[in-house]
């Protein structure tokens, strides 16, 4: 899987220039997080990946094919997009029907749909909710229903727009599991998030946007090691990373255990 973004610019009809020349390439299946303050162009950028938006200038190429070559509905076979608000996507009267809807649209054989269904339902924690009405689900379950219904289409890339928004600890854990599962199955996952703890824990690559341009792009440890630069886009590394940086560590720690381990190692060295 290769997504190539070439000097992408996008101006909304209101005259607002949301992207002012963004270029980078995503290759392979390593999960990528897109971060940045509100209005930095995150959503505008990822909406180009399946041609919900078309570039004002520049191009986005999926495995060498310009996204403008076909419609969003056609791209949905390869590029899945989970919207921030599940209420925008769900409309059928059961979780099962929601799960079947997308793959049916893109022509997946019924047998394949039935094969995928239990596994994805289990992954989304909706195994026992398949015949519930979508309106009877809790907000968290709805979100996973929307995620599951896109995963059911088995695209090569899945884009998540703010998946942790409104999620509890259990929901975040489940999301991590899903992201891991996707990577294992050779699927690329691109996620917009404001939750830096979640980003640090799940995404080896981070792209930070600021005012429609790429501020910094690289390995998450390297990105979070530059809090001063990230400040420009009002992004601050997870608290534990800031503590470790404050203590003079070269690389930011992403968990308490990591910090403790590094501390211990340091002490041993000193002793």
């Amino acid at each position: 899987m290769r997504i190539e973004i070439r000097d992408l610019r996008h101006t909304y009809p209101t005259g607002e220039e949301a992207l002012k020349g963004v270029s980078f390439t995503i290759e392979g299946v390593t999960p990528v997080a897109v971060v940045g303050q509100n209005g930095s162009g995150k959503t505008t950028l990822v909406k180009h990946f399946n041609r919900i938006l078309s570039p004002t200038s520049g191009a986005v190429l999926i495995d060498g094919v310009e996204t403008t070559k076909q419609s969003t509905a056609k791209w949905s076979k390869r590029v899945g997009y989970v919207f921030q608000n599940p209420d925008d996507q769900l409309f059928l009267n059961s979780v099962r029907k929601e799960f079947e809807f997308g793959p049916e649209r893109v022509g997946v054989p019924a047998a394949d749909i039935q094969k995928r269904l239990p596994e994805i339902a289990e992954l989304c924690g909706l195994g026992d909710k398949l015949d519930s009405h979508t309106f009877d689900l809790t907000a968290t379950q709805k979100k996973f229903c929307a995620i599951g219904s896109v995963m059911m289409m088995d695209p090569d890339v899945i884009i998540f727009d703010e998946p942790t928004c409104g999620q509890d600890v259990e929901g975040s854990r489940r999301l991590s599991e899903i992201i891991g599962h996707l990577e294992k199955r050779g699927k690329l996952c691109v996620t917009i998030s404001h939750d830096m703890k979640f980003v640090a824990a799940n995404f080896p690559r981070v792209v930070a946007l600021c005012h429609g341009r790429v501020l910094i792009d690289g390995d998450s440890r390297e990105v979070f090691a530059k809090p001063e630069l990230l400040k420009k886009s009002f992004v601050s590394p997870p608290p534990i990373s800031r503590v470790s940086l404050g203590m003079g560590f070269e690389k930011p720690a992403f968990s308490v255990d990591e910090l403790v381990e590094t501390m211990k190692a340091r002490r041993r060295k000193m002793a």
């Binding site: 509905a73 899945g80 919207f83 925008d88 409309f91 809807f101 289409m153």
Partner: peptide, 27 residues
């Protein structure tokens, strides 16, 4: 936008548009 991302064609012939009606009007 959300429905096109799920494979619903919203542009094209009359019948395609008609099929897109429910997924859009429902939500």
């Amino acid at each position: 936008e959300a429905q096109t991302a799920r494979g619903v064609e919203v542009e094209g012939t009359m019948s395609t548009r008609f099929k897109a009606f429910l997924p859009i009007i429902g939500p």
